[in-house]
Design a protein around this nucleic acid. Structure first.
Lengths: 136, 136
DNA sequence: CCACCTCTTTGATATGTGTCAAGAAGGTGG
DNA sequence: CCACCTTCTTGACACATATCAAAGAGGTGG
C-alpha cells in the first residue's frame, strides 16, 4: 500500500475548486512524524542532544546532563524520557546511574524524512514509513 | 527570521566537573533551531506542507488548503502564518487570493542541521574526558 | 458605492507542555 | 537493616498552542 500522493487533477485557475478531499500525507503518518519532531523541538532537548553527541560514546548520565542546561534533575529527567520514548535516546542502568545514549539512526531518519524528496515523493521503496515506528 | 541555520562554532567539552556552564549548543542557537522544528512539529502543518510540495509549483492558496485538512479557514491561516514566519513558506497575493509557496531550502537546511555530523561535530578539539561518576 | 469573495485578526476555550518542590523508587555499601 | 546516592514520579502551576465563531481587512466587479 504505497501511499501514492493523490495528485489532484485540477488546480483550478481561480483556485477554490471542488477539490479532492484526500490529503497527500496520511493523518496517522503526519502524527507519527510530528511526535518525533516535537521531541526535538525544544531548546533544552537540543542542548542535551548536542552534548550527548559530543561525548565519546554519545552517552552520559542524568547527573552530568542537569548542570549542562541549568535545570533541576526532575526536569531533565522529563526531557530525557521524552527523547527516549521517541526513540532518539536509549536508556541503560550502570550501577546507580543511568546512561542515556544517542540513536543516530533515529535522527538521520527524521532528517531524511524531512528532505522533501523523501517524504513528499514516496519513491518505490517507501523509506519514510520505516522511520515512523510505533507512536504510542 | 532568515533561513540561515544556526551553526555553532564553540564547543567546550566540560562534563560533570564543578559544572562548567557552557553547554555544547549555544542557547540562542538551540532556541532558533527549536523554533523551526516547532513549526514543523504539527500534523496539520505537515499535511499542508505535503500538499504544497505535491503541487506543480509547490504553492496553493488558503481556500484550497483548508479542505485538505478539514479545518476552518482561520485555523489554517494560523498554521500557514506559523510556517511563513518560520521561513518555511512564502506568501504572495494574487488578486483576491493568497498563494503560499514552499521554500525547499529552508526544509533542507533544517534536515541538514539535524544530521549529527553537521550540528554537533564542529569538534576541533574533541578531548571530552570520560565523566562517569562525579566525586562531588 | 455596494455586494461579494478571500483571507486574517480577535476573543474565548480547551488542551498540551515546561518547570519545580516534595517524595518515592531503585541501587550501593556499611 | 540503615544511611546514602542517583533517578524518577507526582502534584501544582504558569505558559503556550490549537481550534472555532464572529468580525475586520484587502481586493474584484457590478
Amino acid at each position: 500500500m504505497p501511499k501514492t500522493l493523490p495528485l489532484l487533477d485540477d488546480v483550478s485557475p481561480i483556485c477554490c475548486g471542488p477539490l479532492g478531499n484526500s490529503p497527500t500525507l496520511d493523518l496517522d503518518d503526519a502524527i507519527a512524524l510530528a511526535v518525533r519532531l516535537k521531541a526535538l523541538a525544544d531548546p533544552v532537548r537540543l542542548q542535551l542532544l548536542a552534548y550527548l553527541l559530543a561525548q565519546p560514546n554519545q552517552e552520559a548520565c542524568t547527573c552530568d546532563l542537569a548542570p549542562i542546561v541549568n535545570l533541576s534533575e526532575p526536569t531533565v529527567s522529563h526531557h530525557l524520557k521524552k527523547l527516549q520514548t521517541s526513540g532518539i535516546l536509549t536508556k541503560e542502568r550502570h550501577g546507580m546511574s543511568v546512561h542515556y545514549r544517542v540513536v543516530p539512526e533515529a535522527i538521520h531518519a527524521i532528517a531524511r524524512t524531512l528532505d522533501t524528496g523523501t517524504w513528499a515523493q514516496p519513491s518505490p521503496d517507501q523509506e519514510a514509513r520505516s522511520c515512523m515506528v510505533g507512536v504510542s
